[in-house]
Design a protein around this nucleic acid. Structure first.
Length: 444
RNA sequence: GUGGCUGUAGCUCAAUUGGUUAGAGCGCUGGAUUGUGAUUCCAGAGGCUGGGGGUUCAAGUCCCCUCAGUCACCCCA
């Protein structure tokens, strides 16, 4: 009954991943894992669902509104909308088992009920890494270094890490007697690059009733341009006289100096005094990462320092710093930039099923090659070669292997490199070692 | 959550402005080709024009609702 069929579809902002997308997506996660582990971050996981009170306490009304939330029996339940709030609960609950400082990474999906846009979804993966339990600037420096390593390991050359410090912003607001209006002022300031000076000023004036003079002082700060060191230089007079601002400037200077000392690529890190970030809990360093080729995609890796992350759940002060790689946004960007190869299989090699009577021979050959480190698929039917080679081509196999009666008798296989059609005869007596080596060599 | 634009085959797009049976390229399946894919030739499958309702003699085309995509706002990865 065709009328009773249910239309197969996914909800707005939720997506399926086909192999050609999931393969690079998994590779991205694997790359992130490797980088995090190199810095000593340990993996954790937390539940998808939390009691709603855990998640609603910290966020703004805005995050509450975006949260998927429902009643399950007697319980008020919600789906996590980021990985930082669950982390706060997690460290508060397990602080004695974890010991401080604690470094963790967490790769998992989060959900936000907002309107989808290019690079924005309702379900998307975040790859968070945080260091909890220390206020040392060394952790701030390390976060910036991780972002740099991460982006380069993924394959990006053209990106910029923009850094700021909430203390500078708040200190200068104090100087201008605007401290009590920090939230709307910073929110407006964050839009500087997008909507321009005049509109930002209008928005600030409407929100705070501040004078032209007060606002000019803030905007002067945000409009500082130049290399990291030039910005630091110009910040000196603007921060002077306010302890908080001077401290923030000093922290920025220390991070810049440290990245220079470890040979950070020039121009990768810049100071942008206009970035503020929406989240209220940031108190020090703030970072955002933009792709030079797709600035409109927004930040692909953002984070910052917070003084007291878990204050809702414990009296112990737990300062920390961390950032979040937007895996799905990055994937969307890579697709747009043609960085996703058209590969639909995770295997390197297809063995052509040539002779129906030789199934055992092919199975053994496949096993040997797997043991030698290759991903190997045996075509399941002895169909025409035309079909099998076409299949290999469509799936994006790097190489095909074929052995008929003649080759089997001679103890060799024909190995074909699909990209250029190169074909060689290689022996099988060594358990596929030479074949594996040849293929890895071709792969570069 | 608010507003604008869009929706025709798996994908990219046509269809004389409301007029018979909705077409093409690419892709897909099969064949030419039981020892070779990406190039060539032939054939085939694939559509309730996103879904529902309305106006009309007549709707892919006009109107309303809904779903999805997209853009802006809000916010953010």
């Amino acid at each position: 009954m065709s009328d009773s069929l249910i239309t197969p579809r996914t909800m707005s902002g939720f997506r399926d991943f086909l192999p050609e997308m999931m393969i690079p997506r998994e590779r991205l996660m694997e790359t992130a894992r490797q980088v995090y582990r190199k810095y000593g971050f340990s993996p954790i996981d937390t539940p998808t669902l939390e009691y709603a009170e855990i998640l609603t306490g910290k966020g703004s009304d805005e995050t509450d509104r975006q949260m998927y939330r429902f009643q399950h029996g007697k319980h008020d339940v919600a789906m996590r909308f980021d990985l930082t709030v669950p982390l706060a609960r997690f460290v508060a609950q397990h602080q004695n088992e974890l010991g401080m400082p604690f470094k963790r990474y967490h790769i998992a999906p989060v959900w936000r009920g907002e309107r989808p846009q290019a690079g924005r979804y309702r379900e998307f993966a975040q790859c968070d890494f945080d260091t909890i339990g220390t206020t040392s600037i060394a952790s701030d420096i390390e976060i910036v270094m991780v972002i740099n390593d991460l982006m380069r390991a993924i394959g990006f050359e053209k990106f910029s890490i923009r850094m700021n410090n909430r203390k500078v912003l708040n200190g200068v607001l104090e100087k201008s007697n605007l401290a009590e209006h920090s939230v709307p002022v910073l929110r407006a300031l964050d839009k500087l690059a997008k909507i321009g000076r005049d509109k930002v000023k209008t928005e600030m004036a409407e929100a705070t009733g501040a004078s032209d003079e007060q606002l000019d002082q803030i905007l002067m700060l945000a409009e500082i341009k130049g290399t990291a060191n030039e910005v630091l230089e110009q910040l000196v007079p603007l921060c002077s006289g306010n302890e908080l601002a001077e401290q923030g400037r000093e922290e920025l200077a220390q991070i810049v100096a440290a990245t220079e000392a470890v040979g950070f690529p020039e121009g990768t890190l810049s100071i942008d005094v206009s970035i503020a970030r929406g989240l209220d809990y940031y108190t020090g360093t703030i970072v955002e990462t933009f792709l030079d080729d797709l600035p409109e995609f927004g930040s692909v890796c953002s984070g910052g320092r917070y003084d007291n992350l878990a204050q809702l759940y414990t009296k112990t002060e737990l300062p920390g710093i961390g950032a979040s790689l937007g895996l799905d946004r990055l994937l969307a960007a890579m697709e747009k930039l043609d960085m996703i190869p058209p590969v639909k299989t995770p295997a390197d090699v297809l063995i052509v099923f040539f002779d129906k009577s030789q199934l055992h021979y092919y199975l053994k050959l496949a096993q040997d090659l797997r043991a030698a480190g290759l991903g190997v698929e045996l075509y399941p039917d002895a169909k025409k070669l035309n079909k099998q080679y076409k299949y290999a081509d469509r799936r994006g196999f790097a190489a095909t292997l074929i052995a008929g009666g003649d080759e089997i008798e001679r103890g060799i296989v024909q190995v074909k490199w699909m990209a250029d059609g190169t074909q060689v005869e290689l022996p099988v007596a060594d358990g596929g070692k030479e074949i594996a080596e040849w293929i890895k060599n071709q792969q570069g």
